[in-house]
């Protein structure tokens, strides 16, 4: 099945003007219908709130996916993601989020996962990687998990056979588990 991105609205959050226009142009050529731009996390938050309150003025009816750099100031990508997932003013706590980062250390990628990111793309990247990550976000519709200390896409991506003891004590049928369909 071929991907048709014409109806997709993507918000690009990147402080480097060069990379920002590179990402915007690439997304448009890949067929993305609506690309909006923000210079850092705080501008992105303002924009997302404007879209919710006054979509005509914002120039887009909605945002389907956020593509954000990590290191920016004053509000970085991690803070933006936390706001989207946790804040009462968030327009959509389930917003698909693709984080771009020059940090490739495992600990950093792990940190992004703990914050509830959908995918991480490390710099330097290629257009192929960008395309693959977009598809991964679209195809992998993981369930969202809400526990005392986590809210975000299920960090367990695959159900691989495992020889050890299963440490997950809860199943769908457990009284401690609530399943919400929507």
């Amino acid at each position: 099945m071929k991907l048709d991105l014409q109806r997709l609205s993507v918000l690009v959050v990147e402080d480097s003007p060069f990379i920002r226009s590179l990402l915007a142009n690439s997304l448009k050529v890949l067929g993305v219908g609506q690309v909006s731009l923000a210079e850092d996390g705080s501008r992105a938050i303002e924009f997302l709130q404007l879209v919710k309150k006054d979509p005509v003025r914002a120039g887009t009816m909605n945002v389907d996916l956020v593509l954000s750099n990590w290191q920016m100031s004053p509000v970085d990508g991690a803070m933006l993601l936390r706001w989207l997932r946790r804040h009462k003013d968030s327009p959509d706590r389930f917003m698909p989020f693709l984080m771009i980062t020059a940090y490739s250390e495992r600990a950093r990628v792990q940190e992004a996962r703990e914050l509830g990111v959908n995918e991480v793309m490390t710099k330097p990247f290629t257009i192929r990687t960008l395309g693959e990550k977009l598809i991964a976000v679209i195809n992998r519709n993981r369930q969202f998990v809400h526990t005392r200390d986590y809210f975000g896409p299920d960090r367990r991506r695959q159900n691989l056979p495992f020889d050890g003891k299963d440490r997950r004590s809860l199943t769908d049928k457990s009284p401690e588990v609530e399943i919400i369909h929507g």
Partner: peptide
């Protein structure tokens, strides 16, 4: 209830699936 699973419709896929 200790954990909630949200199993939502894949809106992105609905929007992007072409022919």
């Amino acid at each position: 209830v200790k954990v909630r699973f949200y199993r939502l419709r894949n809106r992105l896929k609905d929007k992007t699936a072409g022919l």
